[in-house]
């Protein structure tokens, strides 16, 4: 009998500590499915961030390095430079990447560092209990934006579209945004991850997959409502798709041979 669906080998068969409905677990699964398909388990290293996914190293069945909050791309830069034949994954939340670690993220991307960032955008600081993130939508409530994010009057600024910002940099080769709120988006997101990982192993420039992710706990929603909110509130602002794709056209080249 053919096994058509099983637990990824690179993901440990244990219950995660994530809340019910959290996007992190789905994203972990997608990453490990791709790693298994590429046969890269023994040569994968994850840089796990400070955020809810600080637990990542408990679940991924490969080596990990944990760095200070926001410094994930600096650590990933050096790990990949030392081990260029490894698949290096820089896993970051929105606070980690777009607030405290903006400098590291922008400069690693600009240098064209050849690791892949998995950027989990849940529009909130999950781990610390629901503070406003750089990606929090206008009007969205947070413990530190009790009346909703207000860009002008209370000077809270506008949500940052990270990929569109990074797209202007010469070092970035592949920037795609997916979501994990329904099966179609999950499947597309997996394809983006696969493209990014393959580009990394071909030694192309910097790659990042942003994933819109549910945080029902800090959005104060039922899990079922939170997937709807991704659709109705997040996707209209954070457009899904490949924001930048300057990858070598491997398939095209092979067809033309």
């Amino acid at each position: 009998m053919e096994l058509v669906y099983g637990h990824p080998k690179s993901l440990k068969p244990i219950q995660t500590k994530y809340c019910p409905g959290c996007g992190h677990g789905v994203i972990h699964r997608l990453i490990t499915e791709v790693i298994d398909e590429m046969g890269m388990q023994e040569k994968s290293i994850i840089l796990n961030p400070v955020g809810c996914s600080i637990w990542a190293s408990l679940y991924f069945d490969f080596d990990s390095v944990q760095v200070p909050h926001g410094r994930t791309p600096a650590g990933a830069t050096a790990v990949k430079r030392m081990l260029p034949d490894h698949l290096v994954i820089c896993y970051q939340g929105d606070g980690d990447l777009a607030a405290i670690g903006t400098a590291e993220a922008v400069h690693a991307a600009n240098r064209g560092e050849k690791f892949t960032t998995i950027f989990v955008n849940n529009a909130i600081y999950g781990m610390t209990g629901g503070q406003m993130a750089p990606t929090t939508l206008v009007g969205q409530k947070a413990t530190t934006a009790p009346y909703g994010r207000d860009p002008i009057e209370n000077g809270m600024g506008y949500p940052i579209r990270v990929l569109e910002m990074l797209a202007t940099l010469g070092g970035t080769k592949y920037l795609a945004r997916g979501a994990v709120n329904n099966a179609v988006n999950v499947r597309k997101t997996k394809q983006y991850i696969r493209k990014a990982f393959e580009a990394q192993m071909r030694g192309e420039g910097s790659s990042m997959v942003e994933i819109l992710s549910q945080c029902p706990t800090n959005w104060a929603m039922e899990p079922a409502d939170s997937v709807g909110w991704v659709e109705s509130a997040m996707i209209p602002f954070y457009a899904l798709g490949e924001i930048k794709n300057e990858l070598a056209d491997v398939a095209g080249k092979e067809a033309g041979k």
Partner: peptide, 17 residues
């Protein structure tokens, strides 16, 4: 590096390998 903060974390990443 873009800052000393980044530099020390690169040192950490390289040393981790």
């Amino acid at each position: 590096a873009e800052s000393e903060v980044s530099a020390i974390n690169m040192v950490y990443g390289a040393a981790a390998t």
